[in-house]
């Protein structure tokens, strides 16, 4: 038996979920389109257009498929001004979270607006989508919106 250092059993361990999950036909369709810098929504049972697309109608629970391709401009429906971003926020300077109704859609989507200052924000203001430098099929492929 060796008189040097004792044998210690060791195993590398990475804390995390070691599986991947399919995002499914609706969310996956939206995220794949984002990777190609295309915004896609779908039509609810009442004809209203959702973007991001809804998997199931929020009222009737009907599975939704009827996709609509949309442009990259919209209108701010509601907003808050985050003057001091939290550690997890994706912007390190003051920004707005906003409900943006994409032109051609009816239901607003939540994202960020890089407006520089609160005084540049107003309800009803037009905004344009800014794509991330590299797109990879995530909601963050949309870097943010910016005032037009």
């Amino acid at each position: 038996m060796s008189q040097t250092s004792p044998d210690v059993l060791s195993q590398r361990f990475e804390l995390g979920f070691t599986y991947t999950r399919s995002t499914g036909p609706v969310v996956g369709h939206f995220l794949t389109a984002l990777k190609n810098k295309q915004l896609v929504g779908n039509r609810g049972s009442d004809g209203r257009v959702y973007v991001p697309p809804a998997e199931y109608d929020p009222v009737t629970a009907e599975a939704l498929q009827d996709y609509v391709e949309l442009g990259d401009t919209g209108i701010v429906q509601s907003w808050v001004w985050v003057n001091e971003p939290r550690a997890k926020h994706l912007m390190d300077k003051p920004f707005a979270f906003a409900q943006v109704v994409i032109d051609g859609a009816d239901v607003p989507m939540l994202h960020m607006v890089d407006a520089g200052s609160e005084s540049a924000m107003s309800t009803g203001m037009p905004v344009k989508l800014r794509w991330a430098e590299t797109t990879r099929g995530h909601i963050t492929d949309i870097a943010c919106f910016e005032p037009v």
């Binding site: 995002t23 969310v27 991001p52 997890k88 926020h89 994706l90 989507m109 939540l110 994202h111 963050t140």
Partner: peptide
């Protein structure tokens, strides 16, 4: 997928 990655 749609919201949590933005940390709202």
């Amino acid at each position: 997928y749609y919201l949590a990655p933005l940390w709202p």
